[in-house]
Write a protein that binds this DNA or RNA. Structure first.
Lengths: 129, 129
DNA sequence: GTGTATAATGATAATCGTAATCATTATTGT
DNA sequence: ACAATAATGATTACGATTATCATTATACAC
């Protein structure tokens, strides 16, 4: 039996922080943002709610870079660019048509629910240094 | 000063195993494959050489799924499909034209060196069960 | 072949992001 | 208020990966 979700102010705040940034936060960053405002926040709660949001589709995982998972509250279709030098994660437009998941489903015989496109390289700031 | 690489039979074997499979191995799998043949192989050596191959571009990282990094010795452009249920990683054709990195470079002002496209869903075996 | 320099390895311990545990607190509905 | 239980804080546990270091293997000069 699935459990009923109760309201939680801390959870609301975590989601609000996730939605308030153009960055692609990890657990520690979310925690640092909220600690001044919510002194009795636990890092475990951040991890718990990130896992919940991800499971429920309220946020997406961009991927694990250098051992750290990064999230994105913008679930609309778009691609990402990861700088190998400074680690910045930038947004890109979708770049591909919406039929790509259907194409992948047809090719594999399975069901593709979504896809993630990640470019690796040097960002504008890092490419000449 | 960059160091000169010396020949190593164990390194050769690790690369041979990586190239011999259609799977997308992680460190533990490579280790298990070679242990019967090379009893005195260390898991640390596998990790060391995977990192070396990746750094030198001889293999690619497909990504970290469920906390485990998976590699691919096939460096030609193609996409991947990851089954959420059984964890299988399947190959797909390129699906996009080769101009995508140039496009990402132009949009960001940086230099995109490569990209990775990963579909998430249920594979043919898992989708009805 | 012997010797020297040093890259590569095995064994082990350390790291560190994340998940599990459990007693306590907060929320919901009566 | 009260009972039921979801959510949290504090802490510990976990597990993949990386670092350490003494030992071994490779390359190369002589």
């Amino acid at each position: 039996m699935e459990t009923t979700r109760k309201h939680s102010f801390k959870r609301d705040e975590i989601l609000r922080v996730l939605r308030s940034t153009k960055r692609h936060p990890d657990a520690a960053w979310v925690y640092e943002q909220l600690r001044p405002v919510i002194p009795d926040l636990s890092l475990g709660t951040v991890y718990r709610n990130l896992a919940l949001f991800k499971r429920e589709g309220e946020i997406l995982s961009v991927g694990v870079f250098d051992g750290i998972e990064h999230f994105d509250a913008d679930t609309s279709p778009h691609a990402h660019f990861v700088c190998r030098r400074c680690g910045a994660i930038l947004d890109l437009p979708a770049l591909t048509d919406g039929a790509l998941d259907a194409e992948a489903s047809r090719l594999t015989g399975g069901t593709a629910q979504r896809h993630e496109i990640v470019f690796y390289g040097l960002c504008a700031d890092c490419k000449d240094s």
